[in-house]
């Protein structure tokens, strides 16, 4: 399943996309530790698979929560994207 967490508002589209098919094969769950804001969690989904999710309380403010990892210039690689060895995590902005 492709899960898009985030939103679109007047200022733009802000989604963190998690390919849960890749998640189920991953036993590392590095994303949980990598995010400096602690936005990731591992949960059992509706189809009883163990997958990474963006925690509910962060979903409406990811533009702001992710801001520190996205400086205007000299942007380093995103820690969550780098940490995920199976390439399940992508950002839309």
């Amino acid at each position: 399943m492709i899960a898009n967490y985030g939103y679109m508002d007047g200022s733009g589209e802000y989604y963190i996309t998690i390919d849960t098919g890749k998640c189920t094969e991953c036993g590392h769950h590095n994303c949980v530790e990598a995010c400096p804001k602690g936005m990731f969690a591992i949960e059992t989904d509706d189809y009883d698979d163990e997958v990474a999710v963006i925690r509910e309380e962060f979903r409406k403010q990811i533009k702001y929560m992710c801001a520190e990892c996205k400086p205007v210039s000299d942007r380093p690689p995103l820690p969550c994207v780098e940490a995920c060895t199976s390439g399940a995590v992508t950002h839309s902005w």
Binding site: I2, A3, N4, G6, Y7, G10, D46, Y47, R59, Q61
Partner: peptide
């Protein structure tokens, strides 16, 4: 009827 891809927008009223 099993979900393959989704997005939700509940942050913005538009």
């Amino acid at each position: 009827g099993k979900v393959t891809n989704f997005l939700m927008n509940d942050k913005c009223a538009a």
